[in-house]
Write a protein that binds this DNA or RNA. Structure first.
Length: 559
RNA sequence: UGACCUAUGGUGUAAUGGUAGCACUCCGGUUUUUGGUAUCGUCAGUCUAGGUUCGAGUCCUAGUAGGUCAACCA
């Protein structure tokens, strides 16, 4: 009964503190600000769940804002996929906004800043400017253009805007302090000339604001109370604040940037650049390849929104570097699917089994429970006949008593069916078992109520009737990399750790109830794992992805 | 040879100066017509050294380790 109080993460603690210090609760407002230059991944999911979760917790609006200030990298395709992913995760934004919506406002503010003598046009080469910038341990030196007159700056900036200068020839810089210990404060660039088509503003602009100049102002413009980003932006905070200072009206809310550690997952990479590389070099089939840590990849793999949200919740957030064990993610999806996924029988690596005392030509439809974790899931019928497939690894001619499966002279129950006893087997020239001959106890049918039907045998096998089975392609995935943190090795490229066996394609036999399964339908293939229908499925060919195998204490034990 | 951030079981996170807890992983028991699930349990942690304090994972100092910062990227 007693509600256990949930501890707050450090961001929530900051918010509680701000509230306690007089920030009205109605002023709380958050945002998720992706750049539309790639697909979202599980790390973004952490940020999405954090920001939208805060919105839910405090009943505050959350904007989805596209940080689209670099037309060279951004595309509508990414905008669309990001919106889809956020909604799929189950969140609702207050407004969809774009930094590019603020280009005019930003420009107007910039004019004021130039007039205030706090920004200047620099026409040096980027190399020259880099040289003057100094290093983290040495102060920078002033640009010779630093003291242009306001009039000249205004005139030059207008020319930049009017496309009178070439790309790379002129930039507008904030006049701050070339000797500042924080490199970002050494006269950062506010605008550059980019004669590129923008996915939203088209060719309206040929000057584009930089991230720092845009982000804080966008937050301020939208009156975001808490601007949450990842740790690598920590040193941008001084600049964020400096820029907000230039336009801040004390009657309005002043946004505050706060940083948390990005979420890393073991056995994968998370940087957009590297993920893009995997896509472009065709190491994976696309952004939504089921081996990718992208939201779209995880979705196609069979992950549910609930499982991803739960993962973010229990992984938590903090400020230290981390590599979260992918086992935690897998636990989350198994936990959810265990409660929700219908069970079916499929055989991945078949061996033929003949029940010699079962009448030829006879078939029965046996009743099978769809999900013993959820009685409402009901029952279905599965066909049974004289010849069935079982898994190769479920049969051994001889085995010790720890082997609960089928062995010569031993008994086993066929799931939802009869108890059978192995009498003999046929083998090919290599000694591989090609056919198993069994007899069945005709009184032992599951659920028939007879004494024999309740008889205990140690093992229960899944199976499919050969005559009725459907063929399906099953894609079995393993981790994409063999190293826990493939991009952590300074002297090695992350691709050296690619797992050559990350995908295995199997022709499997599945029970006929799966015939009408729809893309993204999720199932438990009993005793094997969770699988979902892939989008490559056609009317003539079913394709399944293995989301995650079931916990397997037998294989571990027998190794 | 600077500034800033971080340091709690194998992993991820709590403990807001007062009993180091939770989850995952691993291992073991029980139940089981899934070697699944459920359930019970075991193992396992405050980077180091000083200091403040009745009391320090928490505060201070120094060290050590890791990370971040010098794109006309975000």
């Amino acid at each position: 009964m007693n509600e256990e109080k949930k501890s707050l993460n450090f961001i929530e603690q900051i918010i509680e503190e701000d509230l306690a210090n007089g920030l009205p609760k109605e002023k709380l407002r958050f945002r998720f600000p992706p750049e539309p230059n790639g697909y979202l991944h599980i790390g973004h999911a952490a940020s999405i769940c954090l920001n939208f979760g805060l919105g839910l917790k405090y009943n505050a609006p959350v904007n989805l804002r596209f940080d689209d200030t670099n037309p060279a990298k951004e595309e509508q395709e990414y905008v669309d996929s990001i919106m889809y992913d956020v909604q799929w995760l189950g969140f609702k934004w207050d407004k969809v906004l774009y930094s590019s919506d603020y280009f005019q406002q930003l420009y107007d503010w910039t004019i004021a800043i130039i007039k205030d003598g706090k920004a200047y046009v620099d026409d040096q080469s980027s190399e020259q400017m880099a040289l003057q910038k100094g290093t983290p341990t040495e102060p920078g030196t002033d640009s010779p253009n630093r003291n242009r007159s306001v009039e000249e700056n205004l005139e030059l900036f207008l020319k930049m805007k009017n496309s009178e200068f070439e790309e790379g020839s002129h930039v507008l810089r904030a006049k701050i302090d070339m000797k500042h210990v924080n490199m970002h404060m050494r006269d950062p660039i506010m605008y550059r000339v980019l004669k590129k088509h923008h996915h939203r503003t088209g060719n309206d602009w040929c000057i584009y604001p930089m991230y720092d100049w845009t982000h804080g102002e966008s937050d301020y413009f939208e009156q975001i109370s808490h601007s949450i980003c990842t740790l690598e932006f920590k040193s941008h905070r001084d600049l964020y604040d400096w820029y907000v200072d230039q336009v801040y009206d004390p009657n309005l809310l002043r946004p505050k940037q706060r940083e948390f550690a990005r979420r890393n997952l073991s056995y994968t990479v998370m940087s957009k650049r590297k993920l893009l590389q995997l896509v472009e070099e065709k190491i994976v089939t696309g952004w939504d390849d089921p081996r990718m840590p992208t939201i779209s990849g995880l979705r196609r793999r069979g992950y549910t929104p609930e499982s991803l949200r739960n993962f973010s919740e229990i992984a938590g957030i903090a400020k230290r570097d981390n590599v979260t064990d992918v086992a935690l993610l897998e636990f989350c999806i198994k936990d959810h699917l265990n409660k929700t996924a219908p069970r079916v029988m499929t055989v991945l690596n078949p061996v033929k089994l003949v029940i010699t005392n079962y009448p030829e030509g006879k078939e029965e439809w046996l009743t099978a429970e769809n999900n013993q974790e959820d009685k409402r899931a009901g029952y279905r019928e599965v066909p049974f006949s004289r010849e069935i497939y079982i898994e190769q690894e479920d049969f051994q001619e001889e085995a010790n008593k720890k082997f609960f499966r089928l062995k010569l002279g031993g008994e086993v129950r066929l799931k939802n069916g009869y108890i059978i006893k192995a009498e003999s087997c046929l083998k090919d020239e290599n000694g591989e078992v090609t056919e198993i001959h069994c007899t069945y106890d005709k009184d032992s049918l599951s659920g028939s109520g007879t004494e024999a039907s309740t008889r205990k045998v140690k093992g229960t096998l899944h199976w499919v009737s050969i005559k009725h089975a459907l063929k399906a392609e099953v894609r079995v995935y393993d981790r994409l990399f063999t190293h826990e943190a493939p991009d952590s090795q300074k002297d090695k490229d992350f691709k050296e750790f690619l797992n050559p066996d990350s995908l295995t394609i199997i022709d499997a036999f599945i029970e006929p109830s799966l015939k009408e399964a729809k893309v993204l339908d999720r199932f438990q293939f009993q005793r094997l794992g969770y699988f979902c229908v892939d989008k490559d499925t056609t009317s003539t060919k079913l394709v399944f992805n293995r989301t995650v195998p079931l916990r397997d204490s037998w294989t571990k034990m027998s190794e």
